[in-house]
C-alpha cells in the first residue's frame, strides 16, 4: 500500500472513530433492551444502558480532547483533526441524547 493510501485510511479511521462509537452505543443499547425485554429480564436493561452511555460518552469526549490537542500541536492534518473532533463532538451529543430516555422511560411494558 502506498504511503498516500495509508494516510487516507488512517485519516478515515480518525474521522470515523466518533460516529463509530455512537453507532456501537446505539446498537448495543438497542440490542440489550430488545433481548432483555424479549426474555423477561427488563430489570437488566436500564443499568446496562446507563453504563454503556457513560462509557461511550467518555470515549467520545476523549476523542474530542485528543483531536483538539493535535490540532493545536501543528498545522499538518489540522483538517482531519477538525473533522474528527467535530464529528466526535456531535456523536457525544447523540450518545447523551440516546442515553437520556433511561431517566424517563421504563424499559419494558
Amino acid at each position: 500500500m502506498a504511503e498516500t493510501d495509508r494516510r487516507f485510511f488512517s485519516g478515515l479511521l480518525r474521522i470515523g472513530a466518533g460516529p463509530a462509537l455512537w453507532a456501537a452505543h446505539l446498537g448495543l443499547v438497542y440490542g440489550v433492551t430488545a433481548v432483555a425485554c424479549a426474555r423477561g429480564a427488563g430489570g437488566v436493561a436500564a443499568p446496562t444502558v446507563v453504563g454503556l452511555t457513560l462509557a461511550a460518552a467518555l470515549g467520545a469526549g476523549w476523542i474530542v480532547g485528543r483531536e483538539l490537542r493535535r490540532a493545536r500541536a501543528g498545522p499538518a492534518g489540522t483538517r482531519t483533526s477538525f473533522f474528527a473532533a467535530a464529528l466526535a463532538g456531535l456523536s457525544l451529543v447523540a450518545i447523551l441524547w440516546a442515553g437520556l430516555p433511561v431517566v424517563f422511560v421504563s424499559a419494558c411494558p
Partner: peptide
C-alpha cells in the same frame, strides 16, 4: 438546534414514559 432539541426531547420522553409506568 441542540439546545432546542434537548428540551423537546426531554419533554417528549416524559410524555412517552408517562403512559405505562408503575
Amino acid at each position: 438546534p441542540i439546545v432546542m432539541l434537548s428540551a423537546l426531547l426531554a419533554w417528549g420522553l416524559s410524555i412517552t414514559g408517562g403512559g405505562g409506568g408503575a
